[in-house]
Amino acid sequence: MAWIDLANPTRFLRLVDRALPWLTALTVFAFAYALNGAFGAPDDYQQGATVKIMFIHVPAAWLGMFCWGMMTISALGTLVFRHPLADVAAKAAVPLGAAFTFVCLVTGALWGRPMWGTYWVWDARLTSVLVMFVMYLGLIALWRTVEDPTRAGRAAAILTLVGALNLPIIKFSVDWWNTLHQPASVVRVDGPAIHPSILIPLLAMTLAFTLLFVALHLAAMRNEILRRRVRTLRLLQAQGARGA
């Protein structure tokens, strides 16, 4: 299945219809395993049981950034390679990215309240993730303003590429500025700094979240392709070329 074959929406739809049930089953199984691991994990010696919030805060943050990264690739697909499904993929991913970034911000604030004493502080990491969230909303607004999907896709692709500059800032914000936020403890030069008993459930939760994201994204892309077909049919009908 060459990459270009995926360019054909009909073939892509057939692929999604075949793969989605399996993916959903896999996601449900992954969540069952990960949640069981998360609640079995020991408490942190400092943070006590609130460390359990990490099992959703970290995957949500990872998905927020992963989704923007994936949208950046789709943006290149739209602008450079003219891949017909690239802007479909980008448009389908935006609400998911916004939702997971929102979850990341909210769970972070709920974790911050007991641990730092305040829901929000203007800290480098939190602020850059908030900027990303505002950009996600900007993209949603852009998609909801421009009527023609092709033109909207091009504009959104450019905005996504510009926004991608924010990703390294988020990743390294904890190292560049002295922040209240925890420095990187998983993706590190000398390996994760978390004890396996908590690391394993964390990785399992992240995998489960990612599977959920992929399943939702494929389904959202399928919807988007159908929505464009409806729009094309309505345009045809309006022209009266084929109307009954």
Binding site: I53, L110, P114
Partner: peptide, 11 residues
């Protein structure tokens, strides 16, 4: 879930 259970459940 310890003293801060409400925050964990809320998240």
């Amino acid at each position: 879930l310890g003293p801060h259970a409400v925050f964990i459940v809320a998240s």
